[in-house]
Simulated assay, not measured.
Amino acid sequence: MTYVDFISKLHKKTHRNYIERVVSDSKADCAVVAKQFGKDYWDGDRKYGYGGYAYDGRWRVVAEEMAEYYKLKPGQKVLDVGCGKGFLLYELTQVVPGLIVEGIDISQYAIDNSKEEVRQYLRYGLAQDLLYEDKSFDLVYSIGALHNLYIFDLKRAVEHIQRVSKGNSYIMVESYRNEQEKANLLYWQLTCESFFSTEEWQWLYKEWGYTGDYSYIFFE
């Protein structure tokens, strides 16, 4: 396994008031709404999730770095597990014209409101039940999704990603390195079910036979 950070530069641009998140509204009630992964989560009030998730081009730099790192070429196949509105998949098709992309997500709302250019390649699906043949994709990645699974489904998802990849895979999840980041994660998150330190994530990956790349985002 190799630690590769494509994402933190985007994550750190967002200012967060962790304490207000907990005390201003019923966080438990907000989490119930967020876990429906519907309009409120993506495009509703900030207390339920993104507070509006519209295309703004920010994923282009990530697509460029991933395409270079994995040496993606026209005709190769890429799968996004937890694709959301498909913004990164769209950018990959622009960076590597001729790339074949697919995405799955548990949010039908996100798929219905995805980037129009890639919408036909997205479908409803579960990370823990990837309906693809072994070694179907040149790259399989999951960004900011797998920590939303309970550990029994998380194990299956990681094993499926390993199985359907020809060798290149990348997983990014939320994690923490110290007690402050742990508290901030607990304050801020709405949908996370797997709360693990970086050492625990690495141990789990090895236990489950994952050999791909990985990284984290932290709530500093």
Rank of each mutant, 00 (worst) to 15 (best):
Y205Q: 08
E220W: 09
Q180D: 15
R60F: 07
T14I: 10
Q162T: 09
N178M: 04
A63H: 03
S24F: 08
Y121H: 08
P74M: 13
Y205A: 13
H160C: 12
S175L: 11
K27L: 14
V140W: 06
K182V: 07
A63C: 07
G38Q: 05
C30L: 06
W208P: 04
Y214L: 05
Q180K: 15
S175Q: 10
Y69E: 07
G49E: 10
E116Q: 03
R177I: 14
D213F: 01
V61S: 04
G209H: 03
L79F: 04
Y69K: 10
Q108T: 06
G51L: 10
S194G: 08
Y48L: 11
C192L: 13
D5V: 14
G38H: 01
M1F: 10
Q180F: 13
K35D: 13
V158L: 06
D25S: 12
A157I: 07
V95Y: 13
D138M: 00
Y170C: 10
S26W: 03
Q189Y: 11
K182Q: 07
D43L: 14
K9L: 11
A127M: 09
D29S: 11
Q94L: 02
Y55E: 14
Y187K: 11
I100D: 03
K77I: 02
K9D: 12
V81G: 02
K13M: 11
S8H: 13
I151L: 14
T211M: 00
V95F: 04
S24G: 14
S175E: 14
S26P: 01
I151K: 10
V22L: 00
E193C: 13
Y121G: 09
Q128S: 15
W188F: 15
E199A: 11
E159W: 01
S169H: 02
E181P: 00
G98Q: 06
Y205H: 02
L89W: 00
Y55I: 08
T14K: 12
S136Y: 04
H160S: 12
Q108Y: 04
S175H: 10
H147I: 14
V4D: 06
Y41V: 00
G103Q: 02
K182Y: 04
F196H: 09
V23F: 07
Y48W: 09
V101T: 11
W42F: 15
E193H: 12
G167I: 09
E179V: 04
W42M: 08
I143T: 09
G75Q: 13
S165G: 00
E64Q: 11
N184Q: 01
K13A: 12
D29T: 09
I171M: 06
W203Q: 15
W201N: 02
L72P: 01
D105I: 00
K115V: 15
L126Q: 12
S26G: 08
G44C: 05
L72Y: 01
Q120I: 08
V140Y: 01
